[in-house]
Structure formats: structure tokens, C-alpha cells
Amino acid sequence: MTRYLLTRLWQSAITLILASLVVFVGVRQLPGDPALAMAGEEASPERLAEIRTQLGLDEPIATQYVTFVGNMLRGDFGASTRTGTPVTDLIATTLPVTLWLAGYALIVAIIVGILLGVIAERFRGRWPEWVANGFALIGLSVPNFWLGILAILYLAVTVPIFPASGYVPIGEDPLQGLYHLTLPAIILGTSLAAVIMRQTRASMIETMKTDYVRTARAKGLGRSRVLFRYGLRNSLIVVVTIVGLQLGGLISGAVVTERIFALPGFGKLTLDAVFTRDYPVIQAVVLIITVGYIVINLAVDLLYSVINPRIRVGGSN
């Protein structure tokens, strides 16, 4: 177990370093000279050189990289070139919106996905299975941004059950906040729920074939009882794996969902930065999402080894 942990940590560290290198090199590929942008077209060569020194652009590339990593570690992402606001402030206001949305969607997806997976297995060959399978197929084939547009049309405009857009901070008014996030969370969670449903069902079919389930059934335990006691516990492992694998999709999905429902989150910050060529913001956003993604994946892997006894045994041998 310790060895597995160390290997995994070591691998993540290398990935982090390589990823930061990619971002560092990528930022230097961005069109436009930062010194020229700061000084203006009319600036004298001396003034340009002065700004280059100030920004550290005349340092060797390795020194620049070290400075870059140092600044990032201290949380110093510079200031937005468009508004002059420190990037850290922009992130502090937008990130919570996205985290609430993604967390809410995750919960919806896990509940709906597992429920449908259980239903499909319990009623195999009968109509509830077809309904659950149909849902999964639609969830995987229909792009969620289209689903979002339709949801606004039918559930917010035609029949006003949910607000079409707008955001209320959960901290200020939890009830209103959750209410405004409900439709976006359902839309964001749909495809994830479909994937979870399919995997839950597959894992349950596997579990129901095992010897210990046969023993439990032979002892007189009912089918539903066995399904919940053994099938569900195994599908928990599957769900953790899926969530790890689908995290990238969830991030991409959150950006789109924010765009459709006009939520002032991280995704909106990202897109605005791309369209206005706000490079410090782009750099920070890319770096934060990437680092967060690596760290969460590591956490998922470790969690996986904790709840899956087979991995734990394998690791300690």
C-alpha cells in the first residue's frame, strides 16, 4: 500500500512538472510581445528594454521558468490586462460558482445513475429496463448544450418552473441559490448519469454471477436484498472510477452550462479571457484547472485503492 502510494505520488509530481512546462512554453507562444503591449507602439527601444528587464524577459529561459513556478506557487497570477484586477480576485469570485454547480451535478448524476442502474438490473427484460437503457442512450448521444437550450425553452420559458438564468450566491440565500442551480446541475449531470447507469448495471450483472451471491441466494436471501447488499457495494467502486475518468468532461461541461445559463463562473471567466486575449487570466485558468485535475485524479486513485480490497491486497504483497 505504501509503495503504491509513493509510486502514485511520484508519478503525479512528474506530471505536474511536465504540465507546468507545457503551460510555460505555451504562454510564450501567445502572439504579441508583452513588453510592447505594456509600453505601447510608440515606446523607444530603451524603454522597451527597461520593461523587459522589469518583467524578467531578458533572463535565461530556465530562470524565467523558476520565477514563473515561484509566482504560481505563491498564488501570484498577475493582473488582468483588460481590467487590471488581480487574477486571484477574479478566481476567488468565479470558482465557487463552478464548484457548486459541478458538485450539485455530481450528486444528481450519482443518484440518478445508480438508481437507473439498479432498476435496469432488477427488472431485466421488462419495460423499466428499456426505459433506463433508452435514457442512457439519449444521455450519451444528445449533446448537453442542446439539452440545456431545450430545457430553458420548455422548463423556464414555456412552463416557468425554473429560472432561465441568473445566479444567487449559495452563501447569501441557500434556498434561492440551489433553486437557480437546479436546472443547470441536471443538464450538466445527464451524460455522467448515463455513463454511471451503464457501468452500474454492468457491474451488477457481474456481481450477480459470483459464487458469494449464489451462496447468499441459496441461504434464502431475496433478489432485491442481494442486489442492494452486494451489487450496490461493488458498484460504488465503479462509480468512483467513472467520476475520476469523467472529470475532464465535467469541467468542459461546466463551461458550456455556465455559458447557456449565463452563470458568472470559472467557465465564463475563461471564455471572456480568450475572446479579449487576456493572457494572465488564460494562463492562470489553464494552470489551476490542470493542477486541480491532476490532484483530484490522484485523490480518486487513492480513494479507489482504499475501497477496493483487491487493489489493497495486491499493493501490500
Partner: peptide
């Protein structure tokens, strides 16, 4: 494997954002 790990570290939308910026 390390190369694939690094590629996987960037969600697809972030790759698109970076490429669109460049």
C-alpha cells in the same frame, strides 16, 4: 506513459482554449 499522463492532465476544453489563444 508519462507523455499520455501529461496529455490527460489537460481537459479537452482547456487544450482548445489554449490553442484558440495561440
Amino acid at each position: 506513459s508519462r507523455l499520455t499522463d501529461v496529455t490527460l492532465a489537460f481537459p479537452f476544453l482547456i487544450i482548445a482554449v489554449g490553442l484558440a489563444a495561440i
